[in-house]
Every structure is written in C-alpha cells, then in structure tokens.
C-alpha cells in the first residue's frame, strides 16, 4: 500500500485545513478513505457501535493536490481506509499560515502513520523551515469497509434551502441552553421552524421565504404533536425531532465556505444537511430523529 500526495498552493491548503478542523469539531475519530479520484472523511456515531455514518465528506483530489499517487493492497482493494484521530490531524494543520507546500504520505514508523511534511517560509529570513508530523493511523481491514460506505437513506419528504448557517447556529446555541431536543419543521410554503419546549417556556424561531428544492407531500400529520400556526396546512409540514446538541455540532460546518446548504427531512425519522462548495467538496450530515 502506498499513498503520496502534494499540495502546492496556500489556498487549497487553507480550505483543506478548514474542512479538517470542522470534522474534528464533530467527532474525535474518523475514517479517511483514499480513493483514486476522491478523498473521503467518514464519521460514525461513536456511541452506537457499528452503525451507518453520520457524516460523509467527499473531496475531489484533483482540486487540491498537484501530485497524487495511490497504490492499494491489491486489484480488488484499490482504496486505502485509515482510522485516525481527527483532532490530531486538525492540530497538525492548525498553525499553518503561508505554507509553501504540504506533502501527505503513508509511512511506517513505529506504527503506520500519515506523515505530513510541511514547508513554511521563515518569517525572519529567506530560509524555509521544515515541519514534519507523524500522525498515527490504523489501517482498516477490507472486511470492515462496508461499515463505511455511503449511507443509503430513504428519500426525503422535503428538501429546503437553509438560511445563513451562522444565524441558525447562533439561535440553536441559545436554544440548547433551555432544552435538549429541538423540533425541526419545514413547510412546502418555504418556512423553516425550530421549536423547543423547556420546563417553563416554549420558543419558536420561524424562517420564511426559503427555497423549497423538493416536496414529496402530502404528509400524514394527524397526531397531537403537531402544533400548527392555524393558517398552515398541516399536510404540508414535514417535521423531525432531533438532539439539539447534535444539530448545533453539525452547524459548525458554517466555517466551510459554501453557497447553499440543503436540509432534507424524512418525516419524523431523519434530518440531513448537505452542503456543497465551489470546489465540489460535498459534506453530508445525517441526524436521526428522536421518536418517543
């Protein structure tokens, strides 16, 4: 197995650094899948054992790397899957400003490592400094690879464009201090409502005039949980109750520059956030619904 890739421009290095740092905020551990055309960061829910991923990030390698060489284990297993501590990776990127070049390669030091060789121009002279980080990784055996395939999720009942993620995150952060669960509701009419119920309070934040990319209604909303505003047709409202902390965590992706983020909801079962950058980096977060 062999992997060697080089980034030569400070702009992709910065972008990659942002992605890595965002992932480290979402989870301590992750799997890096290295394929011929793409790099994937995959995060599974830590608490529930082998389970479908909750975060799936695709990075087209040609946009970031000027050199890219991959040799898999054999013909049928051409990718490399590495388990690593995302915090370690993020921390190795964090202090980088004005990087001249960054080389990533799979090495075997006292244990398998992802080695980063970074060249930084000196701030005080014409020299360059070389920083080398050996990040220990665990090679994932191919029999475990199915755990990390892209999750197959049911078709959403609605897909709606989210307002500014930063705004959403501010509001969810405030709501989190009052309740542990939040109800996410989206209507075919372009409204997104975040609703919490605390001990002594009920708070709802309503966004309107949002773009609905897709609505697969009508929705069965005949149970008493539904709390309509009166003039909203409850058959046009898709909702799902999720853990507020998880939602807040996933909204950290606002640091990655993006045009739009799409929120897809499978009624009562799943909330998916999907963002896509100009460089075709795609990030999907899957938040399962809480059912009583």
């Amino acid at each position: 197995m062999k992997f060697r890739a080089v980034m030569n421009n400070s702009s992709p290095i910065r972008e990659f650094s942002t992605i890595v740092s965002t992932i480290s905020k979402l989870s301590k551990e992750c799997v890096l899948r290295i394929a011929d055309d793409m790099l994937y960061f995959i995060v599974s829910d830590e608490n529930t054992g082998p389970a479908p991923p909750v975060l799936w990030c695709e990075i087209p390698q040609s946009v970031f790397f000027s050199e890219y060489q991959l040799v898999g284990m054999d013909e049928t297993h051409q990718d490399i899957y590495l388990g690593l501590n995302s915090g370690n990776l993020a921390r190795s990127f964090v202090s980088l400003k004005n990087v001249k070049s960054l080389k990533m390669k799979l090495t075997k030091k006292q244990c398998p490592c992802l080695t980063l060789e970074i060249e930084v121009p000196s701030t005080t002279s014409h020299q360059t400094r070389q920083i080398v980080h050996d990040i220990p990784v665990a090679v994932v055996p191919w029999k475990n690879w199915p755990d990390f395939y892209e999750p197959r999720v049911p078709d959403p009942d609605i897909s709606i464009e989210l307002p500014s993620l930063k705004q959403l995150r501010t509001t969810i952060d405030r709501m989190r201090t009052m309740a542990s669960e939040v109800m996410v509701r989206a209507s075919a009419g372009g409204q997104l409502i975040l609703q919490i119920r605390a001990d002594m309070a009920k708070v709802s934040t309503r966004f309107k005039d949002l773009n609905v990319a897709h609505f697969d209604g009508p929705v069965d909303n005949s149970d008493p949980e539904t709390d309509s505003q009166g003039n909203e047709d409850s058959s046009e409202i898709v909702q799902c109750r999720v853990d507020a902390k998880k939602l807040a965590l996933f909204l950290n992706v606002d640091h990655i520059s993006t045009n739009t983020t799409l929120c897809s909801i499978v009624h009562k079962r799943l909330v998916t956030l999907c963002l896509q950058t100009d460089d075709n980096v795609k990030l999907q977060c899957f938040i399962s619904g809480i059912v009583y």
């Binding site: 370690n88 921390r91 190795s92 030091k109 490592c113 000196s122 002279s125 020299q127 360059t128 400094r129 070389q130 920083i131 080398v132 980080h133 050996d134 990040i135 220990p136």
Partner: peptide, 9 residues
C-alpha cells in the same frame, strides 16, 4: 501520539 519535528537552518 503525533510525532513532530521541525528543522531550522
């Protein structure tokens, strides 16, 4: 543990 080394001229 991440092993790090920095070379200075």
């Amino acid at each position: 543990i991440i092993r790090t080394h920095v070379s200075l001229d």
